[in-house]
């Protein structure tokens, strides 16, 4: 068994009377792609938000690489090596695509704050080259000088993926990376994520699209009503009667 990169230990979270997460225990192995699936309202996004510090759990802890993430600021969690791609594209709409990708690369290289008001952006050829190569991978290189606001929703999502990838995070959290994409773009994204997998990046993916899940995931956890009802390889999960009842059956 590989090292555990992320350990979600006994996490509980309630909103008012609703128990969004109960006793969630999840271990993500190094280098694996771990998918979390489940019907709407199962608590998937809440779980991801707990991992990046957006939501503080009522009890339990999230441990990344031996360090507790609970209670840390979002920027600290990112600096530890956890990058997140949001469900609704969170980009810098007023900046060019190239700058959108250069910014996370700066965060990775220079840390949470650097007062480099005197150095010229033009001299940052290393960061620029890095950003351009990721844009190349993701298929947006021809649009690099456009304003990000002008992109289609699918392109925005891919741009955000590029912003995550350029940081070479130890753990990449993807919230429905292909939602709102055309079939063609979805397949392209799957190919890209497969390519990254070969480089050994650990990923957690929340996804509705079973095609995406079964083409990418090494392990799958199934969430329903705030609980993990099944976990295993894609084959095991596919054949689990409980999963069929709770989720797959419902979809058919």
């Amino acid at each position: 068994m590989n090292d555990i990169v992320l350990h979600v230990a006994d996490v509980d979270k309630s909103f008012g009377g609703l128990r969004a997460l109960s006793n969630i225990d999840l271990q993500i192995e190094e280098g694996k792609t771990h998918a979390i699936i489940g019907p709407n309202g199962a608590g998937k996004s809440t779980l991801l938000n707990v991992c990046v510090g957006r939501i503080v759990p009522d009890s339990g802890a999230v441990i990344f690489n031996g360090k507790a993430l609970t209670g840390r600021q979002p920027h600290e969690i990112n600096q530890l090596g956890v990058a997140r791609v949001f469900q609704t594209p969170e980009i810098f709409p007023d900046l060019s695509l190239l700058h959108n990708v250069m910014i996370p690369a700066f965060a990775k290289r220079d840390g949470a704050f650097t007062f480099n008001a005197w150095s010229g952006l033009v001299r940052e050829s290393g960061i620029r080259a890095e950003a351009e190569s990721v844009l190349e991978d993701i298929g947006l290189i021809e649009k690099k000088d456009l304003e990000a606001a002008s992109l289609s929703r699918g392109d925005k999502r891919r741009l955000e993926l590029a912003m995550g990838l350029v940081q070479h995070p130890r753990l990449l959290l993807l919230d429905e990376p292909t939602a709102g994409m055309s079939r063609h773009d979805t397949n392209r994204t799957i190919d890209l994520l497969k390519k990254i997998k070969e480089r050994g990046m650990t990923k957690v993916i929340i996804e509705h699209d079973m095609h995406v899940v079964f083409s990418l995931a090494d392990r799958i956890s199934v969430l329903a009503q705030g609980r993990i009802i099944a976990e295993g390889t894609p084959e095991e999960v596919r054949n689990d009667p409980k999963v069929k009842e709770a989720y797959l059956g419902e979809a058919q």
Partner: peptide
């Protein structure tokens, strides 16, 4: 400029 454009994103990108 990025803070003006989307401050929330800056935080999740690792900037304080």
């Amino acid at each position: 400029k990025a803070i003006k454009s989307n401050q929330n994103r800056m935080n999740y990108t690792g900037f304080n």
